[in-house]
Design a protein around this nucleic acid. Structure first.
Lengths: 358, 358
DNA sequence: CGGCCGGTTGACAACGTTGACAGGACCCGG
DNA sequence: CCGGGTCCTGTCAACGTTGTCAACCGGCCG
């Protein structure tokens, strides 16, 4: 009656103790056999494995990791919105790179809310993630300064840190945006409508700066009259572009500063075409109310952009994830130089929409 | 020299022990204060909190969860490819639903490889996830049968379980696919090219069955001559559609069985239009080599489908994630009825491409 | 004044695992 | 037959936290 009676009450998952009992060995021997540590007689190992299978044993990673040093083998990723294909692609790259080293990715989305972001970061650190990758929506990261010194590699992805030194992977936003505008100007455009997402985001700011560079170089100083920031979602972008199109003297070209804005612009253009306010063919009928379809370049490549014939500023999103993961892994392996910043180049991809003339 | 000397060697994260030492209380009191358990004098609580802030304390969730019952507050999600916008959307829905209950999502992608899938499931179970949501690439889940009985709620998402009873959330694939085909037939089409992804995937099979239903009802028995399965990526789909277009007697309509296939088809159609093999306007010139642009319906809605004017079979992807999460959460709260299957309806969204006449 | 009560605190064990160490069995050479 | 080595196995403590229980303090009632 008394032998092992206590264990039977445990309806939960079996532990090493129970496997050991069934196999008739000590806990430690069971552990050794299951981990393949060696120094276990072949016959014993077989008995242990059988016992484990029989009772449905599964190592408790919580206990195991606690014992081994108190840190998990998870890596955390905090983004604004995982459903955004850009972040999803980045996450895919990270995951592939981690898998090779037996690490797993935990993702958390913040809906671009800095407070939620802080909470999620706290939760991940409590869970003792090995490393933390952040596409931050926040404009201040000083509170992360002590974390950085505490052995958890921190890598900023897509958006640079403020107030902390840390590894960072960025797109060359400024140059990319400049290239787009220069391309439009070279095509003869002077009136270029620039539509941006939340301008508090560093990526947007950098792209806006790039626009400014190119405009200045071309001597276009009043470009801000056609500049429309803070169109955060597709619907807002659509409305904004619609208003630009209806101006008395509308832009002959549009530059949209991320994939969502581009989507909104395409909707607006499409609708205007249906309404007859726009026409792809040039001055077909000077009397017609229809105006000429503006040129368009979008920052960020997107699915089916080729089918739609949309020129974009593209870059290697998955590579961005891989690079970020590698930076973190290097730190975990003891690399110890000062914080690095990797800037990935952009490419202007011509597909027609950016090459329309004024 | 001796007081607390041992602790100083610990370069890692401070523990409760150190917070307690600094605050001059016992470990247990520190724990009580930080968890807000009550029964702590106000002055003591303040001292403890100060000490914690001073040393940069962060509770070790591994230890905490181990002590509390050996299970984490993570929920696992296993998908074929998180970068697929469909899964990303589903994951977003799950995450939002979980966040409300303080649970966090761990995602793992399998690249549709059943073996990788099993490994990842094992890893997640070892990590003692509270629940496991699976969009499975595998065709057999009997090995999960004992897990299901062991207290970890299991929910199958998008693809049904085989060999286990478990909660499931599905799209009404069969009806949706049937609707698409009926719509095309009602539009006058008899020669419908059907292009599918891997036919071993249950979702694809269900859609194919739906196609068969509608074809039979209409007395079209030779539809399999224009049926092309196993085009797994965009490139393969493009090639496949291209070959269909070049047949001596090509289909007058296409039905593509998921978003990737649709993307491939759109590329093929676009290219053919550029090459002059196709023309949107009907029998403009009977002598011309150009053929009429076929009608197209795609299963799965996608970004910009409206701009492209593509008719699709749509459904609420985020809702799917939310529902799956809710099913799991209900189980965690003790709900104990037999396995439930929720089938979400589809909608035919007419945007023009599906309404072209033969 | 003794007993009791509420609030406050601490000692201790336990969660499941693994590292450090020790002990026994066996074989070999001397 | 003994000393030394190689395998194999077990005991014990520890990872950081929290539940259980007991103890202490002061005040208040009878």
């Amino acid at each position: 009656m008394s032998e092992g009676g206590g264990d039977r009450n445990n309806v939960g998952r079996p532990t090493l103790r129970q496997v050991a009992a069934v196999a008739g060995v000590s806990i430690k021997t069971a552990s050794r056999a299951l981990r393949g540590e060696g120094y276990v007689a072949a016959a014993t190992a077989v008995r242990v494995h059988d016992a484990a299978r029989q009772v449905g044993f599964r190592l408790n990673a919580l206990a195991s990791e606690l014992r081994q040093g108190g840190t998990s083998n998870l890596v955390g990723l905090v983004t604004g919105d995982l459903a955004n294909p850009f972040y999803a692609t980045v996450a895919g790259g990270i995951e592939r790179e981690l898998r090779a080293r037996g690490l797993q990715l935990v993702t958390a989305s913040t809906d671009e809310d800095p407070i939620a972001e802080q909470d999620l970061i706290d939760a991940l650190l409590q869970r003792r993630v090995r490393a933390l990758l952040i596409a931050s929506s926040s404009t201040d990261h000083t509170h992360l300064a002590d974390e950085a010194g505490r052995g958890v590699p921190l890598v900023f992805v897509d958006r640079p840190p403020v107030g902390v030194q840390a590894d960072t992977v960025l797109i060359d936003n400024r140059t990319g945006a400049g290239d787009a505008v220069r391309h439009l100007i070279a095509g003869g455009h002077r009136r270029i409508g620039v539509v941006a997402d939340l301008s508090r985001l560093a990526t947007q700011q950098a792209r806006i700066d790039g626009v400014g560079d190119a405009m200045s170089d071309a001597g276009i100083d009043d470009w801000r009259e056609l500049f429309r920031p803070d169109a955060h979602d597709v619907a807002a972008a659509q409305t904004t572009v619609d208003q630009l199109l209806d101006m008395p003297d509308p832009p002959t070209a549009l530059f949209t500063l991320n994939n969502r804005i581009t989507a909104g612009a395409l909707r607006a253009l499409q609708q205007a075409r249906i309404d007859g306010r726009l026409d792809a063919r040039a001055h077909r009928d000077p009397e017609s109310a229809a105006r000429k379809l503006p040129a368009l370049i979008g920052f960020d490549d997107f699915e089916l952009s080729d089918v739609l014939g949309v020129s974009v500023i593209g870059y290697a999103a998955e590579e961005m994830g891989r690079t970020a993961a590698r930076l973190a892994l290097d730190r975990l392996e003891g690399v110890n130089h000062p914080a690095q910043t990797v800037v990935l180049p952009t490419t202007l991809i011509e597909r027609g929409s950016g090459e329309r003339r004024p």
